[in-house]
């Protein structure tokens, strides 16, 4: 019985009705992406800058001018040097190269963001799909629990949790994820509720396909598109939240390079040595900004209804 289900698989999510299907679907997709890129210049620029940031983060050990400064090296003779030829972004209070630390900071921030979004989606989406597809009491229970978590602004819950966990990268990830998953649960629930009433789900049910299989093979894939858009929109928010957490001293600890932590450590020197705060701070701003612009662009590209609101 179960081998019937593949044939019932719904069409790929978000079929583009305006473009007739071409045999060279892949080439067509690439062209569409290109057309999209030309139409939404800000999102494209955002994506390119993000790519550069990701590359800088991944290649930091090889690209950074002073890789040792990424952790606890100190250079007592080179403290608080201004931006210049040897240190493009200057050095911090213990003489570490700030460009290096900002690059290593990108590693930390992007890791936290990726981990938080993955954990939140992995917890939230299945719960939401179960709630939306099953309905009834199950839905009520899951959604009320979600409501409780949503009543805490993400940063508040993170602050409360990070206080009780030992501060560090891992606990920051856990703390932010706890505040973040309910959004995905709610979103997946709404989508799943909508999908439940669609024809192909009824057809599968009539053929006796099991509930779990229906959810996994039919409902989940269709609930993913909005979640993917939301993930890119949320990445900026997670970056900001984790920076705020680190700024409060609840995130990764010295000697880890983390942008929020660098700002906090440098804030008393801001008036005399502006670069100590400015570069890590601007790194947060730039990354969050690019994620937001990209997410906005993706949303309007994938949601034709929002075409006008771009």
């Amino acid at each position: 019985m179960t081998d019937v289900s593949p044939t019932l698989a719904p069409p790929a999510p978000a079929p583009d009705r305006s473009a007739p299907p071409t045999p060279a679907a892949r080439g067509g997709q690439a062209r569409r992406l290109l057309a999209l890129a030309r139409r939404d210049l800000p999102a494209t620029v955002g994506a390119v800058v993000l790519l550069a940031i990701v590359l800088a983060a991944v290649l930091a050990p090889w690209l950074a001018p002073y890789p040792g400064d990424g952790s606890h090296a100190t250079h007592p003779l080179d403290t608080l040097a201004g931006p210049g030829g040897r240190h493009w972004f200057g050095t911090d209070a213990v003489g570490r190269d700030l460009l290096t630390r900002v690059m290593y900071g990108a590693r930390t921030s992007l890791t936290v963001a990726a981990a938080v979004l993955t954990v939140s989606a992995l917890v939230g989406v299945p719960l939401g799909v179960i709630a939306g597809y099953t309905g009834g009491v199950v839905k009520d229970v899951i959604m009320r629990i979600t409501d409780v978590f949503l009543a805490f602004p993400a940063l508040l819950l993170s602050v409360a949790l990070a206080t009780v966990l030992h501060p560090g990268t891992g606990s920051a990830i856990i703390a932010i994820s706890v505040g973040w998953w309910p959004w995905y649960a709610r979103m997946a629930c709404v989508t799943a509720t909508g999908i439940r009433s669609r024809g192909f789900v009824d057809a599968a049910r009539c053929l006796g396909v099991s509930r779990i299989r229906i959810m996994a093979r039919h409902v989940l894939p269709n609930a993913l598109t909005p979640v993917l858009v939301q993930l890119s929109l949320d990445a900026g928010g997670v970056i900001l939240t984790s920076a705020a957490l680190s700024y409060l001293g609840l995130g990764p600890q010295e000697p880890t390079a983390e942008w929020g932590l660098m700002v906090q450590q440098g804030q008393d020197l801001f008036i005399t040595d502006w670069w100590v705060v400015a570069f890590p701070g601007l790194a947060i701003l730039l990354t969050a900004f690019c994620f937001n612009v990209l997410g906005e662009g993706l949303r309007s590209a994938l949601d034709p209804h929002r075409e006008l609101t771009r």
């Binding site: 900001l240 705020a244 929020g260 701070g281 937001n292």
Partner: peptide, 8 residues
Amino acid sequence: AVSVPVFL
């Protein structure tokens, strides 16, 4: 305005 870290 929504992307700037408020502490910065």
